[in-house]
Design a protein around this nucleic acid. Sequence first.
DNA 1: CTCCTTTTGTTGAAAATTCAACAGAAATTT
DNA 2: AAATTTCTGTTGAATTTTCAACAAAAGGAG
Lengths: 220, 220
Amino acid sequence: MKKYLKVLKKCPLFTEIEEEDLLRMLVCLGARVEFFDKKYTVFSEGSPAKFIGIVLSGSVQIVQVDYYGNRSILSELSASEVFAEAFACAETPALPVSVIMCEPGEVMLIDCSHILHTCHNHCGFHQTLIFNLMKDLAMKTIIFHQRVEITSKRTTREKLLAYLNVQSQKAGKDSFDIPFDRQELADFLVVDRSGLSAEIGKLKKEGVIDVEKNHFTLLM
Amino acid sequence: MKKYLKVLKKCPLFTEIEEEDLLRMLVCLGARVEFFDKKYTVFSEGSPAKFIGIVLSGSVQIVQVDYYGNRSILSELSASEVFAEAFACAETPALPVSVIMCEPGEVMLIDCSHILHTCHNHCGFHQTLIFNLMKDLAMKTIIFHQRVEITSKRTTREKLLAYLNVQSQKAGKDSFDIPFDRQELADFLVVDRSGLSAEIGKLKKEGVIDVEKNHFTLLM
DNA sequence: CTCCTTTTGTTGAAAATTCAACAGAAATTT
DNA sequence: AAATTTCTGTTGAATTTTCAACAAAAGGAG
């Protein structure tokens, strides 16, 4: 497990926990690591939510597909980010989303019942873990709010600009990469891909943005 | 505070906490109760998030308004439900939403720093509180996912039907009330009110649903 | 390097949403 | 009980999105 320490220390689940404590803790929690190839389904919609996942390398997407085949992308997560924690904590009988490997890499899986139902009052690290989980879930809720704010816009243009503003703020720069290709961005914004392409073209021509593949620059 | 016990016991924040402990705890947390009239703004967008709110009576709406004046309704909460907890826990400098009193009533306010930063390791109730907060935030995240699932549909009809299905499941019946008037429902689903009215009319004519004001029945 | 697959931008037609405006119904106030 | 305000359903026109199809560009495999 030692080789994952660097990534894990950045994981919001483990803030305020020292390296050696962390290592012991992982054993106690029964954490295991698995490697997945690109496009592999780590968790699939409908299966029971038992595990919390942590991205160690590569990246994953959280995806929802309705019965018309419309895909919506909820988020893309990279190293040291946590996924499925809300469902695992709430002990949901069926996951409403799938988790797909986006860039091949390793994922740490922790059976959430080990966090929720064991040594409730004694172990100090355990309490810290619950506290961190709470903080993490609060943060996730806020990110969800941002998504709602973006997808609540009525037009493709407004959604795109709202998204780019959030990304720009997140990057702290006017110039930044986005983690989606065009189809994925469309699925995230809940719009049609061709319409999105057209809108990007317009904004470019109007001098509002500059685009080079996945690299965007806000000009005004 | 005694007269609020019945409502507070149903509050997800206080599960597993005995009445007398709860009363002492509320004092320790500096909880206070305020009455607000209909349409009163309890928290307003942009203000710092310091307090967790609990609806004691009446109801509140969580609302977001963009600079075009488009309102989107995130949720409506009634007695014993908690609001603003995510922002308070994450200590967000500026609330991204407003909380508006919908039906006049009382609200309990708890300064979240009293939950996050005090007697971290000692008091047992405190730990239970953090655990409950974590559970509550997990649940909120899941409700958010439902909202995303609904608003990710491409047409007014699909959004409406997805919403009604969720409400029906929640009620455990095919027949149920919704907490929104038409304009509010439109703002929740992110669609145009007149288009929504038209769609409701169609579904009624087609025999898919039955509607009487805010009471809906799924027929198929 | 070439072949094959995936991604992207463009098009035009069809479908759906939005917008503004209005009138009747329902609810609230005086 | 009358007057006023709010809510709802309807309309038609304008706008926007969606959909399907295609070709150029980019990327990957052998």
